[in-house]
Amino acid sequence: MSKMQLQFRIYMQSLKLPLKVIMAVYLANIIISMAINAVVLKNHDFFSTMGYNTALILLNFILGLLVAIPVVNFNMFNLFLGFGMTRKRYYINMSVFNLLVCFALTLLMTFVYFTLSFMLRSGSKILYVMGFASVDHRLGTIFLFALVCFSVFLVIASLNSLICSVFHSKGGWYGLSALLVALSIPVLFIRQIYDFVVWGGAAALIGTALLAASLGASYLAWRFVSGLEIHT
């Protein structure tokens, strides 16, 4: 068993609990929306509305997972370092996991979104996810959608890793401040993000910018991780 496998096994173990919680929330969401559609609204366009809801709830699910994963990862730091692992290896393994998770989630998201959009082709609703309208099924669009998804997921995961690394190396108050700063970005640029979602416009540009941002965040996180100590 290599150290990467070792870390991955422990990582999957500790991911079980957050995964269960997020899954439960996700399922509850779907059931409630289904019930509202079927009983309260008595919607004649049941499947298209369901599809619409499912896609958005799935997005929330993915975001929840992306937040949970670095937190879990950082909670394992003490264990790994005490188990003959260096900070560097720990960080590399963690980054590989983050990339893998983002990749898997992108595949999932792309698959679900385009299945839905094919289903909705005849429906009256147009579904917008990540700035892409559900009426467009060209291969290039699928690729761009995947790129944007991947970069958005990656930037969330790396920002979150950065916040966790600040939290663990500088203490609770700095961590909280970092979290607030990170949260304030979408709040400050809500208008631009809205435009981006609606117009779907410069997907390639935005994707690249987000990838660059996640690289920057990852580098900063490494700076913090390389100086991390075990105090407990």
């Binding site: 068993m1 290599s2 150290k3 496998q5 070792l6 096994r9 422990i10 173990q13 500790s14 079980k16 909670n75 394992m76 003490n78 264990l79 005490g82 188990f83 003959g84 692992m85 407990t232």
Partner: peptide
Amino acid sequence: FYLKSFRDLKVKDVLKMAEAVY
């Protein structure tokens, strides 16, 4: 107590991991 972070892993799995480290 830190060993509890292995959670659902059995003791023999933990020992196997130690084998990988040392």
